[in-house]
Simulated assay, not measured.
Amino acid sequence: MQTRQLGSYEVREVGLGTWNIGADWGEVSDEEGREAVREALDAGITFLDTADVYGDGRSEKHIAHVLDERDASDDVVVATKAGRRLDPHVSEKYDYDHLSSFVDRSRENLETESLDLVQLHCPPTDAYYQPETFDALARLKEEGKIDAYGVSVERCEEALKAIEYPGVETVQIIFNPFRQRPAGLFFREAARRNVGVIVRVPLASGLLTGALSRDSTFPEDDHRNYNREGDAFDVGETFSGVPFETGLDAVEELERAVPADLTLAQFTLRWILDHDAVSAVIPGSTSPEHIRENVAASEADSLTQEQHGIVADVYDEYIREHVHHRW
């Protein structure tokens, strides 16, 4: 698998997102969650992304368990997130005292003295305009509790503001054929400032796997059931903010561009990786087969100009009006 620069780190360009082994994606047993991490490591993945609220620390603990049994903590970069434990979730609470407490808890969950990478977890927009929030992260780094810090954002505006702070090494953002706005000004600025870009929700909550249909149903505790209208958190996290039926129509059009030797998921990941500003993409899965297929996208040929053109046309016809102005 190819490697890319992610802030201070060099990582393989396909990582593993671990939201689904923590919570909000239906029932996943502890052993299934740990086995997904094992499979990722076996496939050559060196970058794992988690958060302190994924199952209230469950995802972090699964990662720690597997890294310990493999004695692999020095070979793998683990990024976690902090801030969503705040209640109420307000910008003024993104301060040193709260962030320090969250970092200490993650250090315990991940069984490490210093966290590789801590990201603010989609804070309210006002937090990006608080220098004291980023001063707190710098202080935690100086104290040796974290090695690097970045942000996970909802909107391009937030990403652009965050990278004005010199200590911010990475930005995690939603980017895929259904969420193309980051490829404009933000990617250019991130590249200019040598900021690493982590792409989350690359497969639009499963829409861009081609495995969903109009008859698909989801468990009660799956965000694809309870967050379609943004009732629990930002609606852009579920199906990338695209209305489900519209997304299915767009997928049907996209599939005509997929070559015979790739799945739609691999085609999507290759499309993402064709953007040089991207440092790592983090699809999540508990399926060993899907994890291996995701990794294989790294070795696939870049898409043709015609294929990129079809993706652009589908976005303009079906998707743009729903998402482009919002995120």
Rank of each mutant, 00 (worst) to 15 (best):
M1K: 07
Q2E: 11
R4K: 15
Q5D: 08
Y9M: 02
E13R: 10
L16D: 06
G17P: 13
I21F: 00
G22M: 11
A23H: 13
A23R: 14
W25T: 00
V28K: 09
V28M: 05
D30M: 00
R34Q: 14
E35I: 04
L41M: 11
D42I: 08
A43Q: 08
F47K: 05
F47L: 10
D49Q: 14
D52T: 08
D52C: 08
Y54N: 08
G55E: 09
G55K: 10
R58F: 01
R58I: 13
S59M: 04
I63K: 09
E69T: 13
R70N: 02
R70L: 07
R70V: 03
D74W: 00
D74V: 02
V78F: 11
A79D: 08
T80A: 01
R84N: 03
R85C: 04
D87A: 13
D87Q: 13
P88D: 00
V90L: 09
V90D: 12
K93L: 13
K93I: 02
D95T: 06
D95Y: 02
D97T: 14
H98R: 08
L99A: 03
V103Y: 09
D104E: 15
S106A: 11
L110H: 03
E113H: 06
L115A: 04
L117W: 10
H121S: 02
P124T: 00
D126P: 00
Y128L: 09
P131A: 11
E132G: 03
T133D: 10
L137I: 09
L140D: 07
E143P: 08
D147A: 10
V151K: 00
E154N: 11
R155F: 03
R155H: 12
C156G: 09
E157T: 15
E157Q: 14
A159P: 05
A162L: 00
I163A: 06
Y165Q: 12
V168L: 05
E169C: 04
R179H: 05
P182I: 09
F187M: 11
R188C: 04
A190L: 00
A190Q: 05
R192I: 03
R193S: 13
P202V: 11
L203N: 02
L203C: 07
L207W: 08
L207C: 06
L208D: 01
G210L: 12
S213E: 13
D215R: 12
D215C: 07
S216L: 11
P219M: 01
E220C: 02
N225G: 01
N225S: 14
N227K: 14
D234W: 10
D234F: 07
G236L: 06
G241M: 03
V242Q: 12
P243I: 09
F244A: 02
E245G: 06
G247A: 05
D249F: 00
A250W: 04
V251Y: 04
E253W: 05
E255T: 10
V258E: 10
D261V: 05
T263M: 06
T263K: 00
L269R: 04
R270M: 06
W271K: 01
I272S: 06
I272D: 09
D274E: 03
D276M: 02
A277Y: 14
S279N: 12
S279E: 06
A280K: 01
V281A: 13
I282Q: 03
P283R: 04
G284M: 11
P288G: 11
R292P: 08
N294H: 03
S298T: 10
A300F: 08
S302L: 06
S302P: 13
S302H: 11
L303H: 06
L303W: 09
E306P: 05
V311L: 05
V311W: 11
H322P: 07
H325W: 09
W327R: 15
